[in-house]
Nucleic acid binder design. Structure first.
Length: 322
DNA sequence: GACTGTCAAGACCGT
DNA sequence: ACGGTCTTGACAGTC
């Protein structure tokens, strides 16, 4: 049985029921140190409010926004924000640890470790260093992960995978911070499948995040199995070191087409809110497997609350017994 | 106040 | 070689 006492439910980056009192970022052209300090200060206040909301509502898995410190990995930023805001970051870290909140971060598509272009790889390193610096300064352990996609294919997937493995095994450990121990890879929707990620795992030991939506989109799957691939990635996580496996979940937007009477998936589109019938099916298919789940759905915390409610009802006997 | 173009960054695809 | 698209929110400028 999936254990509702350990499974954590969360959502990424923003919460639509918590208002902001100031801009979260600004344009590069208007960069200044004072603007950066002001913005980060506000972002940290927002993050604290958001975490308090999450604790109050039992949403104990959260993805911290990559925009916490705007332009942190850009050459324009020489400001040692991690020293300036050290006390506040530590304080947030203490709160996270106190309430046992699971944390992840997800750098944008610009992190491409297997690019043939050295500059792009270097920029990717800088971006990873930035992400880890946040988690390190918060003094979070290795269960707080930074998830990325494998990258491009460049006409030869085998070579591209080879470059990824070489970079991971040789270069990443030379970088500062906890990058190598925090990095995890996620299957994407058209280039690297779970199978491809497993191939990389075999030669690196990198844990794999299972994205159910990308898995459904990948290739021409007519009948998509969830349980088998999920079962395979679970063993890529070392429970004591990495924590529970992470799963990204979102539901397909189903649309009708004019020239076809069947309902078709429009690949890559997310629904506005969680489809509880699909989610129920997902829970049924994954019964007995232990993981934390991140709901990547437009209305963020609202869907997470609906999902939590469903899980609680489904496992009422467990919760009341435990 | 509403609307719209634009934003640091990459890869891929069709033309 | 080049522009559009992916995806996406929110800033910033315009009316």
């Amino acid at each position: 049985m999936t254990n509702p006492a350990t499974m954590k439910i969360g959502y990424p980056c923003i919460n639509s029921s918590i208002s902001r009192n100031a801009p979260s970022t600004f344009k590069l052209a208007s960069y200044s140190e004072s603007k950066l300090v002001k913005t980060v200060k506000n972002n940290l206040i927002y993050l604290k409010n958001l975490l308090r909301y999450n604790v109050k509502n039992n949403l104990l898995f959260f993805r911290i926004s990559s925009d916490l410190v705007p332009f942190a990995s850009h050459p324009v930023c020489k400001f040692p924000w991690y020293i300036f805001f050290q006390a506040e970051l530590e304080q947030i870290g203490d709160y996270i640890k106190k309430h046992d909140i699971r944390i992840s971060m997800h750098p944008d598509q610009f992190v491409v470790l297997n690019s043939p272009n050295e500059m792009i790889v270097q920029n990717s390193f800088n971006e990873l260093i930035y992400h880890c610096k946040i988690l390190d300064t918060m003094r979070l352990d290795e269960t707080a992960k930074v998830q990325i996609h494998v990258g491009g294919v460049y006409g030869n997937k085998l070579e591209a995978i080879g470059r990824f493995i070489k970079t991971y095994n040789k270069s990443l450990k030379l970088l500062e911070g906890s990058i190598k121990s925090r990095l995890v890879i996620e299957n994407d929707d058209h280039l690297y499948s779970i199978k491809d990620c497993l191939c990389i795992h075999q030669q690196t030991g990198i844990p794999i995040v299972f994205d159910s939506f990308h898995h459904e989109c990948f290739g021409d799957n007519t009948e998509v199995l969830i349980r088998d691939p999920l079962n395979m990635i679970i063993f890529t996580w070392k429970k004591n070191k990495d924590g529970l496996p992470m799963v990204d979940y979102s539901s397909q937007d189903i649309v009708t087409t004019s020239n076809n009477s069947h309902l078709l998936f429009r690949k890559g589109k997310h629904t506005a809110t969680i489809d509880l019938i699909s989610f129920k099916k997902f829970l049924k298919q994954t019964e007995g497997l232990d993981f934390d789940i991140m709901l990547e759905i437009k209305d963020k915390e609202k869907s997470a609350l609906k999902a939590l409610d469903l899980v609680r009802k489904k496992y009422r006997h467990f919760v009341s017994a435990g």
